[in-house]
Design a protein around this nucleic acid. Structure first.
Lengths: 141, 141
DNA sequence: GGCATACGTAACAATTGGTGTTGCATTCGT
DNA sequence: ACGAATGCAACACCAATTGTTACGTATGCC
């Protein structure tokens, strides 16, 4: 697969879980549904657990479950939980000759931060539940 | 450097050019300002030329110049010219067992496409000129 | 015409990030 | 005690990006 499969996997799993919030699912089950590996699932879902979106239990009847009402989980929560980033924070020294260059560099970085913040704001307007039952979007779009 | 330096380099160069649109700049000059390599500059700027944002001329007094008024170049133009993509179009077969899984997969893919479209719409609202002289944004943000 | 300049492009090494996989420790329930 | 599940580390593999060198080609100046 390519990059961004983490976000895809997370969204897929969460919206799948939203369909039956009581059910506990194992990494193996989820991996089977998503066509990947249990370890990969635990890696991705572990970040969502750190962010308080999921809970996991070890042991015999263990597995994964939603930690919150799926209506209360926005795509922004998932995005930031996975540490996704457009701008990749390339804040090296650069140390150009003139300060004009340096100011322009900071300007570009600031613009990219603004753009990413707009993206997060946009993601915050959509919940996991809306993935399962879209409001007005065409589902084949 | 890391990923996404293409977009950063393109924005940096374009906004720098917008400050003096008549001047012709060589790849070596641009690379020197951006702290990278002339070949890398030509690679990135070549895509912008294919998109009609820049012109390049070979030979003795050759170099790069803006092909359009910087007011007419939006960040969306740059983004699509560079083939940047959030979703990475992971449209493999997947061939899951049940059709419910398949429908959910398409749903997630549709959502990610919507998100990316929203991002492009947001990028379309900002021009190269606005990088140099931001309207109401804090320049140190 | 000859020559320096600058783009265009191919080829390659090095680095990075992501994914898949194996293995093992740990924890929980029966 | 045993099986089942997560947690985590280590590793190989693959793809994308970047940096670099080299060469071809076009352009303008002498």
């Amino acid at each position: 697969m390519k990059r961004n499969s983490r976000l895809s996997l997370a969204l897929h799993t969460l919206s799948h879980m939203a369909g039956d919030p009581e059910r506990v699912r194992t990494s193996a089950d989820i991996a089977d549904h998503a066509g990947t590996n249990p370890v990969v699932v635990r890696r991705v879902l572990g970040r969502l657990r750190e962010a308080g979106l999921l809970t996991s239990e070890k042991g015999h009847a263990g597995g994964w479950r939603l930690a919150k009402d799926p209506d209360g989980i926005t795509l922004a929560d998932v995005y930031v939980a996975l540490d996704e980033s457009l701008i990749a924070s390339e804040e090296e020294a650069h140390a150009s000759e003139c300060s004009v260059e340096h100011a322009l560099h900071r300007r570009v970085a600031g613009v990219m931060r603004d753009i990413e913040q707009s993206l997060i704001d946009r993601l915050r307007a959509m919940t996991i539940t809306e993935i399962c039952s879209p409001k007005d979007k065409a589902d084949t779009a």
